[in-house]
Amino acid sequence: MNPHAPIIQMKNIEKHFGSVIALAGVSLEVFPGECHCLLGDNGAGKSTFIKTMSGVHKPTKGEILFEGKPLHFDRPRDAINAGIATVYQDLAMIPLMSVSRNFFMGNEPLRKVGPLKFFDHEHANSVTMEEMRRMGINLRGPDQAVGTLSGGERQTVAIARAVHFGAKVLILDEPTSALGVRQTANVLSTIDKVRKQGIAVVFITHNVRHAMAVADRFTVLNRGKTLGTAQRGQITPEELQDLMAGGQELVELEGSLGGTV
């Protein structure tokens, strides 16, 4: 599965907010074409970690190597330009705007008319329709508002957008946490398609079943630290669940709930 060198390496990342240590030395490497699942309970530091990866936060300590070279991001734009795209759970799309305007938000295609530059709606519309068809989304038209799409479709549009604009690393922040069963399945199959194109996917979730469905490797975060990385097939869902929750307590809780968690 990992014939190449890692595309991105996070080495001993620490992030302090004032006196709060959000990340206390997290390391992670992701290879092209793998889906690396980052698991952790609420407050484990998942969000802080991916924000560091996507240029929103600067690490207090530690090193980021992208394609083997050290990288420093000052703004999210730097990370996007380098090929690291992030799809946030509920901030992926703007519901009031059309699918095509959303798709090209921040990357508007331009058409020159004399000295003036205009938004090339024709190009934007045809590309959007084509990309949506590939992802299996039926649009009434490219000017249909994103607000009329379901949550799963919005995530899919955001993923298609990131891939279209040349993402090499795609970070998905809990893309399935607010979705129904069918929509979750759609998003997971989209992740699978993206991975097969050779893009490295970092999939953040706290749902072990979703993780098991697509991930090649799993890294568990707890209280700002890495609890280790496991290959697919080397770990059971139960073990992952225990690691996320920090072990013993959940076992007791689970016992009292009849093993349903």
Binding site: P76, Y88, L96, M105, G106, N107, E108, L110
Partner: peptide, 23 residues
């Protein structure tokens, strides 16, 4: 009809989402 117009819509629609997209 312009890129800036798209940014105006995006900034008002959801400023944070627009920022994440590089607007």
């Amino acid at each position: 009809r312009t890129r800036f117009g798209n940014w105006i819509f995006a900034s008002g629609g959801d400023a944070q989402a627009a920022r994440y997209a590089g607007v």
